[in-house]
């Protein structure tokens, strides 16, 4: 089992979510996060350009069995990349080993609980 954590652009969320559903990856957790990267965001405040300290991003957490890692990762890459070959700020994907997974309702453990 693996835990796939993806940090993506806010405005790509709909597209990524739709692509994941299409690929039958439907069990996902989404949260709003902020962070530093190489991307700069720009707001305007009373005629002045403002660079916020932290850039808002979307974080996806998806726990999958090993067989589904590739399709999940490929789907995210394809749908989260900005049109025209991608740009700074499109995000990152982290894959970490997942020790255990438990479904609370049935107390099932391991791969079938995912």
């Amino acid at each position: 089992m693996k835990l796939i954590t993806a940090i993506i652009q806010e405005d790509q969320l709909d597209q990524v979510r739709e692509a994941l559903i299409e690929a039958e990856i439907t069990r996902i957790t989404v949260s709003r996060v902020s962070g530093h990267g190489r991307q700069v965001d720009e707001d305007i405040y009373r005629g002045k350009k403002v660079i916020p300290n932290l850039v808002p991003k979307i974080r996806l957490d998806i726990a999958v069995n090993d067989a589904f890692v590739d399709i999940t990762v490929n789907t995210i890459i394809k749908s989260a990349k900005s049109p025209g070959g991608g740009k700074v700020g499109d995000g990152k994907i982290f894959i970490t080993p997942l020790e255990e997974c438990i479904r609370i309702r049935t107390e099932e453990r391991g791969g079938q609980a995912i």
């Binding site: 405005d11 996060v33 720009e42 707001d43 305007i44 405040y45 300290n53 932290l54 808002p56």
Partner: peptide, 16 residues
């Protein structure tokens, strides 16, 4: 908000 006005209505949604 971001495309035409360069602002965010709900600034408090994200730590900034």
């Amino acid at each position: 908000d971001s495309s035409y006005h360069g602002e965010h209505g709900y600034g408090m949604l994200n730590p900034s």
